[in-house]
Simulated assay, not measured.
Amino acid sequence: MSEQRWRKSSRSGPDTNCVELSDTGLVRDSKSPAGPTLSGDVRSMLATVKSGRIR
C-alpha cells in the first residue's frame, strides 16, 4: 500500500495548526499527524459548503 499524501490549505502558514486532507479524502489534525483520521465523503461535504446550501 502506498503512503498517503497530505496537504494543508494554501492559506495556512507553515507554523499554523489546521486540518490536512489526504489524496484519498481522509482528514487529520496537523498537530497530530500520527493520530486518528476522519473518513467520509469529504469531497461531497466541501462541495455542499461551497455551494451555500448549508446555513
Rank of each mutant, 00 (worst) to 15 (best):
D15Q: 08
D15A: 08
S30E: 08
A34T: 08
I54W: 12
A47Q: 02
L21V: 15
L38M: 11
T16S: 15
R5T: 07
R55H: 09
R53V: 12
G13L: 13
R7T: 07
E3D: 15
T16R: 15
G40Q: 03
G35T: 11
S32N: 13
S51C: 07
S32I: 08
T16G: 13
T48Q: 09
L46V: 11
S22T: 05
T16P: 10
S2G: 10
P33T: 01
G13D: 09
P36N: 03
G25M: 04
G35W: 00
S39W: 03
V27A: 04
A34F: 11
R28M: 05
R43E: 07
T48S: 09
E3F: 09
S22D: 04
V19P: 03
L38S: 03
D23R: 06
R43I: 10
L38H: 06
G25C: 07
D41C: 01
R53P: 05
W6Y: 09
S12W: 08
T24H: 14
S12H: 10
G52L: 09
L46W: 04
K8T: 06
L21Q: 03
L26V: 00
R43T: 11
L21N: 01
T16W: 14
D23A: 08
L46M: 11
V49A: 10
D23F: 04
S10Q: 13
M1C: 10
R7W: 11
R5G: 03
S30V: 05
E20R: 10
V49W: 08
E3A: 11
P14L: 14
L46C: 11
S44E: 08
D23M: 01
D23V: 02
R11Q: 10
G35M: 02
R28G: 05
E20I: 08
P36Q: 07
E3Y: 12
S2E: 14
C18L: 14
C18W: 13
K50G: 01
S2N: 15
R5E: 07
G40E: 07
R55M: 08
R28P: 06
G35C: 05
R5D: 04
E20H: 02
K50W: 03
P14Y: 12
C18P: 05
Q4D: 15
G35N: 07
T24A: 13
E3Q: 15
T37D: 08
Q4M: 14
E20L: 03
T37N: 04
R11H: 12
T48D: 07
W6H: 02
A34K: 05
A34V: 02
P14M: 02
C18R: 11
I54T: 13
G25H: 00
T24I: 12
V42P: 00
R7K: 12
R7A: 11
M1T: 14
S9Y: 06
T37I: 12
E3H: 14
S22N: 06
S39D: 13
P14R: 07
I54E: 01
T48F: 12
M45P: 01
R11T: 04
I54V: 15
S30N: 05
S22H: 03
R55K: 15
T48G: 03
R5A: 13
K50R: 12
T37Y: 05
S30R: 05
I54K: 10
D29G: 02
K50F: 06
W6M: 01
S2I: 05
L46K: 01
T24F: 11
A34W: 03
L21M: 12
N17L: 14
S39V: 11
S10H: 07
